[in-house]
Amino acid sequence: MTSQPEPGPSVGTADRGHERRDRLAGLLARAQEGERAAWDALVTELTPMLWHTVRAQGLGYESAQDVVQTTWLVLVRRQHSVSTPGALIEWLVTTARREAWRARARERSADLLGEDALEDVADPVALPEELLLADERRLALWRAVGSLSRRCQVLLRVVAFAPRPHYDAVAKALEMPMGSIGPTRGRCLAKLRVTLAADPSWNPDWRTP
């Protein structure tokens, strides 16, 4: 982090993943012994990953918050079936996804009775263009991600908020099995790289944004 010239946010921090994994393992163990501060730290650290998991399932703003909260409440009840950070990540993403699916099913059935629920279903992330247009490089990235398959979009969005050693746990939880060709994450990223390379707005000198 010190010698590299202006590295990006998570570049040049190869050891951070390890630290974070060990930290997560420690937090999990302490949480399971009932330490409140450890739970608070886990919630602070992993809620963004769950938020984006649930929002990537197309859930509305309010129900997404409900689903994330429910996921944590369920975890507290099932915590003893989860013993490693990898298992924790996989369990959380799997549960959040299942709860999101249930919430959508409820919204759909409520929608038969009234139109209220309609607003809350599948609202894609609005693109505040003025924000993005100010930064051509980011707009290029957003476009490139948008051109990927839905599977890839969901996977990369969640991976972006997952602790690095547990990317595989995320892929597993999203039911994207790692085949012999390689992890889906790798393929999604490879595709993204090609798309970005073909876009002149993507700053080719990505190391020094």
């Binding site: 990006g8 998570s10 938020w51 609005a126 693109l127 990223l189 790289r193 990505w206």
Partner: peptide, 24 residues
Amino acid sequence: QDAFVVAELGELCSLLDPVPPGLV
């Protein structure tokens, strides 16, 4: 580059769809 792209995407998603205040 992948690490960079993923980090950028994370920042972008945080800007566009931040975790609601108070949720944590």
